[in-house]
Amino acid sequence: MKALELQNIRKTHNDRAILDVKSLEIEKGQRVAVVGPNGSGKTTLLTVAALLDKPDTGSVKVHGEPADWRRIEKVRGHLGYMAQEPYFFRGSLQKNLEFAISGNGISKNDRLSRIEKYAGRLGLKDVLNRSPRTFSSGERKRAAIARTLIREPSILIMDEPFTFIDSASAAVLEDTIKNLPEDRTLVFSTHDLSHAYKLADRIITLQSGKVSPWTPENVFRLTASRTDDGYELLTEAGTSVYFPGDLEDGKEYIVSVNPNEVLASKQPIETSARNSYNGEIQKIETSGTRTVLVTVHCGSGFQLRVTLTDRAMKELGLGVGDDVWVHFKSTAIHVHQ
């Protein structure tokens, strides 16, 4: 079942396309991170998906229901959106939370217990009577999350939940997101890839308003294992990646490798890179610019994506099914704690 379906969404600002999404479908229960550089259209995509911003063309369906006007308020009821810099109404946090759940046919008692529950969960019980406008930025983020979650929407959309936030608040937030019921759909944007890797099971990259086929990095879930001169990180099938830094033995880590830092060659070559793998080209994707993304299958559960220039591609004469070698230095490895 699809939670969100966006078709042919286009939005322009001053004749410049700021969002141009042919098709984007998000499954119910999926946890989706939207990444991309500043100005790539992340916020616009999220507000359009949250039915708060109208695109110039295109349609949005929520749980299969088209969001046309007659139903927009009902449809929007499934959605909870949190802005990057949330606005708080005048009055106490309690009042802000009450506003979010009043008029939903929830009894007074249930409202109070919900406020209790979510304020407690986000560590805001002591500040319920204060205005969120007097909060620290971390408290404000947590308050905004409480206000969004308290409605228990089936689809949560959050714009940069981890910005302007202290580490304690970030931990609370991460925990909250991890503990969302399984049937909740989550879409959030972030500029910090480690949050995307940790919390999302799908990453959407936006580039100039378009959904890019490029996943920004190669991401793996690998288990650390101590060796003589550092660690090796192992896939389930046993493929090994060398990493010189400090890790905890036996622990699973999220590891990423930037495709720009991966080299490809037709023959095995001598390089300073500690990690070299032989594989088969599975997919070649053109981005429309002068670079190409090549997916190389190097054994079960270990695919590496490599960026190459058009010219390099031609000179190497590579095609799908060809045998290649790929190499990266251990400094290209990012381990996300």
Binding site: S59, D68, W69, R70, I72
Partner: peptide, 11 residues
């Protein structure tokens, strides 16, 4: 398209 056109008219 519906999503857009109907915003205004309902307003």
């Amino acid at each position: 398209m519906e999503f857009q056109g109907n915003f205004k008219s309902a307003h």
